[in-house]
Nucleic acid binder design. Structure first.
Lengths: 346, 346
DNA sequence: TTGAAAGCGCTAACAA
DNA sequence: TTGTTAGCGCTTTCAA
């Protein structure tokens, strides 16, 4: 590693024939510098290829221009789906536009939680974007205690209103509304025995989608609800269960596209035609899945990348948890709309 | 943001009744400190909840304990597959074990290249792990010029041996060997008209898999090769082409599982039974795809997470590009073995 | 509008 | 073995 000493403020100042302070002002866009000098400085910066030393800057400003993205418990099956990739893209775009660095923290298991907690509390980043999948995850608590501005991805599992204060800021899609729309679509198709395969019910998204399903139905036949876990295998299992329990069902709303893909396989295996005998609607609009199933899947789309962008935006605009001074007026959560994408399965 | 001033070395030193230097030594594991004092210091650290200020440390050590992960051109279709998620997991695990931070840099388009180049050259990280998908990507060049230790994910597209020096370090799976094994497996099944749907040929992985296909065959019928692009749609297109051009084919080796899934759909549509009429082998062993196709896909597995871990390991062990002093003796690239996973399609 | 100077919290000689 | 001290490169009062 050839250690070519990179130019410092000092060097730029010397070259431009001004003081370090002036260079600093120009570099940081302080308007109180005569244009003649500013120009000189800019030229010197260019010629020398000067890049500010972030460490030195942080040391005095106590800012880091970096935020942590914490993805908790990325079990293979969950993490490996395109969800986080897209969300990361959205986040990255927004952060990049503001010249903020993205520090990625992946955790699995208790030890990691502690490590992450220490890191976040350690004051190395200016804020955090947190994805916590499970209701009983201790990480959100740890993070809140760290007193760092934070925005959550997905509605957090704990009660939003605490001690009169605002809840934790989060971004989510309208799981409940989307589910409602899916079921209503099936009803519009004339289906009357509409089953639901849930997601993993220790995640708010699954709970909300189940609630949406219930919303849409006048009265719900419990026998038409089977528990899944967002995976194809879970979808298969639940579909078999449903078919045994309620052979007369004529539609299925699955909590995810992956779930639906499993359900479709079982339906095919059992000789039910889709959508003729049984109409199927998924959730997510994961293209790699929804477009590839047999038949292609009608599903509820959520704009995942946009959710990421929004999370980052909220954090940067100071909507992160630990506010300073003025109490936040806006609601804690931002919920993005979903839309139904019609393909062939319903 | 309540700015509770976090304790400094100074504070710990005062509390422990020693000098800052001693505290620093203890914190950094310098053995030359009497156990009595060390213990006192450790207690003070605990009581105060002291966490070293990384900025201050970097400023003097000129190290950052941070590594950049650069993912170039994450077009939706490519980035959204589980590949990077898994690789990131592997990388994250290795870095975490060494208490190194992961700074994620996603790029799309020229402007970003420049920005990334500037960031890497700016000396904010100690090294970089780079995923560049396309042969003509300018990013690798930019990065090498930045003079930062770097390990590439996937065999880089430029010639490995330059001016007698070692090539750029990289980690890849044995694309060529895996392809060879896939084709030989098909031959072992008695197939004689084995077609190949390539990946995007501006990526080395696709080129290497094509070479492997050619290796296995005594003489290759060009009519049995169709160009794909790693997507299902590409697989469909290529499969149609092949079926028209060589209706007598009895096997297909697809450059990826996604490609294979498209091919399977066309085969079904054309009434060819798999594997009876046409045997199909994919590449990647992406579970979400390979286990879900109809029939489940026989494919070549690569251990993606392990590749990530290895990349990080190489970088940390100083095998990154810009060496200091001793010339690296090991070969530039590390190639991980693949293995054939048999399911039902071949 | 500009410059001089005082640190930010830490490590690393060097002395003791 | 421990302490003293001199910066690392930057921002930010404060004076000029």
């Amino acid at each position: 590693m050839t250690e070519e000493p990179r130019p410092t403020l000092e060097a730029v100042a010397a070259r431009a024939g001004v003081s370090r302070a002036t260079v600093s002002r120009v570099v940081n866009g302080d308007p109180g510098v005569r244009e003649v000098l500013a120009e000189k400085v800019r030229r010197a910066v260019d010629e020398l290829g000067y890049v500010p030393n972030r460490a030195a800057r942080s040391l005095v400003t106590r800012r880091h221009d970096a935020v942590a993205v914490v993805i908790a418990e990325p079990e293979t099956r969950v993490f490996a789906d395109p969800f986080f990739a897209l969300q990361l893209r959205g986040i990255s775009k927004e952060l990049t536009a503001h010249d903020i660095q993205l520090v990625l923290l992946l955790t699995e298991g208790r030890d990691d939680h502690e490590r992450v907690g220490r890191y976040l509390a350690g004051g190395h980043v200016d804020g955090a974007l947190v994805f916590s999948l499970h209701l009983d995850d201790p990480l959100p608590g740890i993070i809140r205690r760290a007193g760092l501005p934070t925005v959550f991805g997905g509605r957090p599992g704990w009660p939003q209103i605490e001690e009169g204060g605002p809840g934790a800021p989060y971004v989510d899609c309208d799981n409940r509304g989307g589910a409602r729309e899916a079921v209503r679509h099936l009803m519009g198709l004339g289906r009357s025995r509409i089953a639901h395969i849930t997601g993993a019910l220790d995640q708010t998204s699954a709970v909300d989608r189940l609630d949406g399903y219930r919303d849409a139905l006048a009265d719900v036949d419990q026998g038409l609800i089977a528990e899944g876990d967002f995976t194809p295998a879970g979808g298969e299992r639940a579909m078999r269960e449903l078919l045994d329990r309620a052979p007369d069902l004529d539609a299925v709303f699955a909590a995810s596209d992956l779930t639906a893909s499993g359900a479709l396989r079982v339906l095919r295996e059992r000789g039910r035609r889709v959508p003729d005998d049984v109409a199927v609607v998924g959730f997510d609009d994961m293209l790699a899945v929804a477009e590839q199933t047999e038949p292609p899947l009608t599903t509820v789309r959520q704009d995942i990348e946009e959710m990421g962008r929004l999370m980052a935006g909220m954090l940067l605009r100071g909507r992160g948890g630990a506010e300073r001074g003025t109490e936040p007026v806006e609601p804690a959560g931002v919920v993005l709309p979903t839309s139904l994408v019609r393909r062939d399965s319903a």
